[in-house]
Amino acid sequence: MNEQDDKKLNRRQLLARAGKAGISIAVAGAISKLLYDAVGPRGGVEDTERVTLPDFSVQPRPGQVISIVNGSDRIKTVDKAIELLGGIERFVKPGETVAIKPNVAFASPAMLGATVNPELVAEVVRLCYSRGGAKKVIVTDNPINDPESCFALSGIGKAASAAGAEVVLPKAQFFKHTSLAGGKLIKDWPIFFEPFSKVDKLIGITPVKDHHRAGASMTMKNWYGLLGGRRNIFHQDINSIIAELAMLVKPTLVILDGTEVMMTNGPTGGSISDLRRANALIASTNCLAADSYGCSLLDMKVSDLPYLEKAEKAGAGTTDYESLKPIIATVS
């Protein structure tokens, strides 16, 4: 073979090359056709999954909406308060999974009362298992301070685990966008959703605390922990957001702990001198009822907390808790 032949393209090579070139052109064309976008991006929020928080409430029973138990021992008062509403069996059925949402907002020790008493959380976990026959109980919150530190320092993580609950810390992928029907603020807003999407029942537990902006932090304010994103901007309209949260979240049961009430420097506290013993514990199937009574522990009236009236107007219940015939008891 001389050099001349070497440089010549024979037919076979030509066909092969033409074939490959054809395929390459076809692929380039197909990709362009497939991905062709005549409009361009519209801007704004990308399409993400939209969710709705399930309704966790149980059948209302007149006369068993709210119970108030006086006493200094939280274990005894919470047992009694739940018993008076029909027992945990009314709320948790055998084989169900339960989420408990305590207020674990701050990385501060339990004794300062900025977070829920860990023994109280543990007792509710135990009740769910032992008498409710729950299959699984998770304890979760999306705190303000570092989540891991909050659960560790408040003692809630340890107490809940010891009682057999699974502690779930918030991860970015647990947040999904939701909108509240008729809501002005909760519109396409990310909420802490994932752990609650897989459970049958939801129990909120929170202490009664002074709150400089909102006036008081109780069971409705506890749901603030479900908000994700830059939730702090809602402080511009704190009353409306709390009222909307009361509409968004329909818990099975809420427990409001007024055994020790944070009277000053709330909601962080930081000193035992901020706390006052009120020896009251409230259980209710309705947040608004619990909070309407709870504000009295802070020496406040219902009209001092605009969010209570707003929630009432929105249909979250009544601020006139007396009309619900609260069951009052004392344990020693």
């Binding site: 709150h211 902006r213 402080h235 704190i238 000193s271």
Partner: peptide, 12 residues
């Protein structure tokens, strides 16, 4: 209205 800062100040 806002005061998120005040609310979160951990000092006592």
């Amino acid at each position: 209205p806002c005061i998120v800062c005040e609310e979160n100040c951990p000092v006592s």
